[in-house]
Design a protein around this nucleic acid. Structure first.
Length: 194
DNA sequence: CAGCAGATTGACT
DNA sequence: GTCAATCTGCTGC
């Protein structure tokens, strides 16, 4: 198991990076406690030319400012006023590419994940808002350096075969016109991991 | 400054 | 299937 280096995040093809993130392991190390899961669903957001992106047409606000940071930075924002969504910023500084992590398969710290999700709740990490809750990721972590310890990604040599990868249009971006149809979403059935 | 819609989820009819 | 929860940013008065 090795932490993904800065160079992984600096590539120019955010769609290819979104595909490559399938099978990588997202790890959080918060308050001395560790939780981790295999990334099983991602979406690419391709910068200023992408109508579905917060950074479309060069938009720059307090919320999305960190999208313009160098690749390997966490972009965490609040969706619908409730859900914390976690993105991996990619490419060089000032190019606002990002990959939204939409689902993980739990690997480590399952009890803590259940605790964070709340008593009575069955452990679910199959949505962009539920996985951040399980991993303890909040808007306070916006701007976190992903080559550091608190939040990072690892390559544990989990291979997701091409034939297992399903690509298709992104979820919930109907407002984006033709860009809503781009096949920028990638996922696979985590069941294949067992 | 009011109104509205959004990269969503879970509870309820 | 419907709907509330409730923060950010955009549009229009």
């Amino acid at each position: 198991m090795s932490k993904l280096p800065r160079s992984f995040y600096l590539g120019g093809d955010v769609v290819a990076i979104a595909r490559d993130l399938l099978g990588k392991v997202l790890v959080t190390h918060l308050d001395g406690r560790t939780t981790a899961g295999v990334i099983s669903e991602t979406e690419a957001y391709a910068g200023a030319g992408d109508r579905a992106s917060h950074a479309f047409d060069g938009r720059r606000t307090r919320r999305n400012e960190v999208m313009y940071a160098e690749g390997g930075t966490a972009y965490v924002y609040l969706c619908y006023g409730i859900h914390h969504l976690f993105n991996v910023v990619t490419n060089s500084a000032d190019i606002p590419h990002a990959v939204l992590i939409r689902a993980i398969h739990p690997l480590e710290g399952l009890d803590l994940m259940r605790e964070r999700r709340g008593s009575g709740a069955r452990l679910s990490t199959g949505g962009p808002g539920t996985l951040t809750q399980a991993l303890g990721i909040r808007t306070a972590h916006n701007g976190t350096d992903l080559t550091g310890d608190a939040i990072h990604l690892e390559d544990r040599s989990i291979v997701v075969p091409s034939r297992a990868v399903i690509s298709g249009p992104r979820i919930g971006v109907d407002y984006a016109g033709a860009d809503a149809l781009l096949p920028y979403r990638f996922h696979f059935d985590p069941h294949l991991l067992r």
